[in-house]
Measured scan of single mutants.
Amino acid sequence: EADPRLIESLSQMLSMGFSDEGGWLTRLLQTKNYDIGAALDTIQY
């Protein structure tokens, strides 16, 4: 079963217009401990 923190973070990022095609966003959020800010910083640079 998916981590509730992942579901919450992923749904927030999907609502911002990101896609999780191929699961890349799920993996990114997992490596950033479900921190949306850290994930966005990684995507920006």
Rank of each mutant, 00 (worst) to 15 (best):
G22T: 09
S19P: 04
L10I: 08
G37K: 15
L14G: 06
E21R: 08
M13I: 06
G17F: 02
D41V: 12
E8H: 12
L14H: 09
L25C: 05
L29W: 00
S11W: 09
T42V: 13
E1Y: 13
S15T: 10
Q44G: 11
Y45D: 15
I43S: 02
M13G: 02
K32Y: 10
I43V: 05
T42Q: 14
T31C: 15
L6W: 06
Y45P: 15
A2Q: 14
I36R: 02
L40S: 03
T26D: 03
G17W: 03
L28K: 00
P4Y: 10
R5W: 05
D41E: 14
Y34I: 02
E8A: 13
G22Q: 08
G22P: 01
M16K: 07
L28C: 06
Q30N: 08
I36V: 15
D35A: 04
M16Q: 05
T31E: 15
S19K: 12
P4E: 11
R5M: 08
W24K: 05
Y34N: 08
M16R: 07
E21T: 11
L14W: 05
L10Q: 01
T26E: 04
D3E: 08
L25I: 07
R5Q: 09
S15I: 12
A38N: 06
Q12E: 12
I43P: 04
T42G: 07
R27E: 10
L28H: 02
T42P: 00
L40E: 02
G23D: 04
G17H: 02
D41Q: 14
A2L: 13
Y45K: 15
D20K: 01
D41G: 07
K32W: 08
D20M: 00
A39D: 00
G17C: 04
Q44F: 15
Q30I: 15
M13F: 07
F18W: 09
N33L: 08
Y34P: 01
L14N: 08
D20I: 02
A39M: 04
S19V: 11
G23L: 08
G17N: 03
S19C: 11
T26Q: 06
K32N: 10
G17I: 03
L29H: 01
L29V: 03
K32R: 07
S9V: 09
R5D: 06
A38S: 09
A2G: 12
S9M: 07
P4Q: 10
P4H: 12
S11C: 13
P4R: 11
G37R: 11
T42F: 15
S15V: 11
L14E: 09
D20N: 12
I43F: 06
T31W: 11
M13C: 04
Y45M: 15
G23Y: 07
S15E: 14
R27W: 06
S15D: 13
